[in-house]
Design a binder for these strands. Sequence first.
DNA 1: CAGGATGTCTAGCGCTGCTAGGATCCGGTC
DNA 2: GACCGGATCCTAGCAGCGCTAGACATCCTG
Lengths: 196, 196
Amino acid sequence: MSAISERRERERAQRHRLIVATARELAETEGWEAVTTRRLADRVEYSQPVLYSHFNGKDAIVAAVALDGFTELAGHLSRARQAAPDPGQSLRAVCDAYLDFATERPALYDAMFVLPTELRFASAETPPPLRDCFDEFVNCFNPGDERRELSAEVIWSALHGITVLSRSGRIPAGGQEERLDFLVARFGTAEDGPLT
Amino acid sequence: MSAISERRERERAQRHRLIVATARELAETEGWEAVTTRRLADRVEYSQPVLYSHFNGKDAIVAAVALDGFTELAGHLSRARQAAPDPGQSLRAVCDAYLDFATERPALYDAMFVLPTELRFASAETPPPLRDCFDEFVNCFNPGDERRELSAEVIWSALHGITVLSRSGRIPAGGQEERLDFLVARFGTAEDGPLT
DNA sequence: CAGGATGTCTAGCGCTGCTAGGATCCGGTC
DNA sequence: GACCGGATCCTAGCAGCGCTAGACATCCTG
């Protein structure tokens, strides 16, 4: 009873991961509009109802992919920040890494930030990876700066805006580096508090 | 032959406007997910195929609504800029007006910036209202400032990010005023060029 | 080996965007 | 005034969507 149900639980968890990984792969290769429950079920070689025994619905699958994305993004940003030659350049490094992530994995980015999601941010039940991402921006500023959270919010917003507006052609696709330079120049050095 | 076909063309143009207005109203009252071709056809008291004799598909209807939105937004921003007490505050006024527009008409804003659209920006066939909106931001800066376009792009991006991230709860919903203050303080006064 | 629970699939519901083909109406011509 | 031709519009239906009820098989327990 114990060993058997444990094995079943393991298999179930593995199938869970298989579904998420397959959904992500399908989205990254063919776009989210190609990720239908039927096609996804085909790919994992199970029938549709199996998906619904793991997730409440398609949105939950997207959210699971998004959560993976946040974990990756947090690591990506963290590595970039710590690899910065000196603390004064950490903000630029993190912003670079963010834009890099967004352009390299557009489908994943959409799951995290564009598609309707049931993930809750900035609240008690916010999953740790989400908060970790945000904190990477916060940590680019001096701990004594009481507006570091505000700075992080606005910078994140600007990066997100730059990402989606340029991707959809609402601002020219080129010149992202220039925008980053400009953004960091204005936000990195404040009149009321230097960087860490 | 001439008078009759002219009358028909008038009626057709009016029905065209009716469709767009109805789609917009439906979206603003019940959200875009409630705007289906069937429901829309019902509301305008025609059958579905009539919609397709006016528009290439649902996306084209959304784009038409979005275009109306850009016209309104351009006027909204322009009025705000010209009503600013002095030129130094025009940027703040325009940003305020932008956020105001986005929060007051979320469905319209979605049509313009979030939903997949076939509108082309920053190109030769960009409809004038789109460019007008962008120019309202550009005109907040000194004509001699060769980076005014860049400033406008980044500010617009930040405003868009603030809008969608706060709306979806990815950053706290409150504190928009504070973010605006912060944004304008950093971008309004530059070390290399004062405002008009 | 029988009984029951667990797991899975087949089939189908109501909805979507979109369209082919037939009916209907109406202006122009004899 | 009667008819023809073309424009206009609607009925009906297609393929695909997310999702689920109920039948079926499979495996563990007693």
